Amino acid sequence: MAGVGGVPKDPSKRARRNKDTIPQTVLRWERAEAPELPDFRIEKGEELVEFHWPERTREWWRMWIESPQAEHFGSSDWEYLLDTALIHARFWSGNLSLAGELRLRVAEFGATPSARARLRMVFADADGADQGQGRSGAPSAREMYGNLRMMPGGKTDQGKGA
């Protein structure tokens, strides 16, 4: 299935050290401001009519502008997401055949936990919440059940006649 798969392994961690046949291009990165959803016209029959963004798409667009990922979006990212907004609008207007394309496109931006994991995205606050201990704050299984021991012979009283 297109759009699914693991992130390529870091070349320094590969078992085989064959030189990449395609050289890497390093780009200068510049953060871009999010554009507003544009006003435009679409053909409807023989005439041009004003396109109306569904309220759900306007909410979706605002969510992306306010997302933690947005601070890493360049101008081409916003343009791609703007095209995706049109797909989102058509999906919410009843064109359900666009669901697969919409899913693939939003995955490229880390819309779901699995997409963020594939893109190796983590939330910085999660690291600080546990003071770097890798714990949620709830008692560990060892703390809760550490004193439990199996009975000699490995059997319990369950199943025996009373």
Rank of each mutant, 00 (worst) to 15 (best):
S114G: 04
D83N: 13
F51C: 02
A2F: 08
I42E: 09
P54F: 09
K160L: 12
D77I: 01
V49K: 08
G154W: 03
W53I: 01
R58Y: 01
W92N: 13
L102I: 05
E46W: 09
G134Q: 04
E101N: 09
R14M: 15
Q158P: 00
L98W: 02
P11E: 04
L82I: 02
G6A: 07
T112E: 10
A111C: 10
Q131N: 15
R17Q: 14
A15C: 12
T156K: 00
Q24T: 15
K155D: 03
S136M: 07
Y145G: 01
R149Q: 02
E79N: 11
W92M: 14
Q158C: 07
A117K: 12
S97A: 10
G137S: 05
A111I: 08
W60R: 08
G94N: 05
L96T: 14
E79Y: 04
G159E: 10
H88I: 00
T112I: 06
Q133M: 14
F123H: 07
E46P: 07
W61Y: 14
M1R: 11
W53L: 02
A85Y: 03
P8Y: 10
K9F: 08
D127L: 13
T112A: 10
A138G: 05
L104T: 04
G146P: 01
R41E: 15
I65D: 04
Q158K: 11
T21N: 09
D127A: 11
M144I: 04
S75K: 05
Q131L: 14
E33S: 12
T57G: 09
F51L: 05
Q131I: 02
S12Q: 14
Q158N: 09
H72S: 15
A111G: 07
G132Q: 03
M1G: 14
G74Q: 05
F123Y: 11
E55W: 02
M121A: 01
E47S: 11
R120K: 13
N18C: 12
R118H: 02
V106D: 07
R149C: 00
P113K: 07
S136I: 09
R31I: 07
F123T: 04
R120I: 04
A115E: 03
A111Q: 13
L96W: 07
Y145V: 00
M1A: 15
D127Y: 10
D83Y: 08
T112S: 15
D83E: 13
M144K: 13
Q24E: 15
S97T: 08
E79K: 06
Q69I: 06
V7F: 09
F91H: 14
E43L: 12
R90H: 15
Q69W: 06
L81A: 03
E47P: 00
A126Y: 08
Y145P: 00
A115R: 01
D10A: 09
A15T: 13
M1I: 10
L86M: 14
P35A: 02
D125H: 08
D127P: 00
R118I: 01
G128I: 08
D157V: 05
K155C: 06
F109D: 12
A124W: 08
G134F: 06
L119Q: 02
